[in-house]
Amino acid sequence: MHIVKQLMAIPGVIAAGEFAYRGDRFSFEGALTAEYARMASILCRSNTMSVNMQSEIFDSFAANCGCKPMQGWIVRGAQASVCNVGNYFAFIENRPDLLNDVMTIMRAKVGDVGDDLLVNLYAKIGGDVKEALY
């Protein structure tokens, strides 16, 4: 089953989606409008790039410290949270055990994110366009 559909089958998952490269290519399911999903995709892509940059800094001081490449991030709100793994995101309610379940599924289904994040994200929309990135 597709990751987004699998996530949406879990009670308490508000919305889930997938984004690529610039954050403006996306697909989603759940309680978001297309415009809000576009905004969420840009936000998630931006945060993903930011924590990836931070992991590069940590790694430069302690190679193989276990942080790089960054796999994702979580924003824990008062009643809701945002989970991001690779190029997938999920908006969830703060129900008991839901965060752990969602993160377990996302990590298992998305798999380990490779070293080159931009290429990884760009590959999601197809084509060998590596030269266009640099």
């Binding site: 931070q54 490449p69 960054m70 924003v75 824990r76 008062a78 380990d112």
Partner: peptide, 9 residues
């Protein structure tokens, strides 16, 4: 906001 988490390898 309650917190933030970064998920490394």
């Amino acid at each position: 906001l309650q917190g933030f988490s970064m998920v490394g390898l």
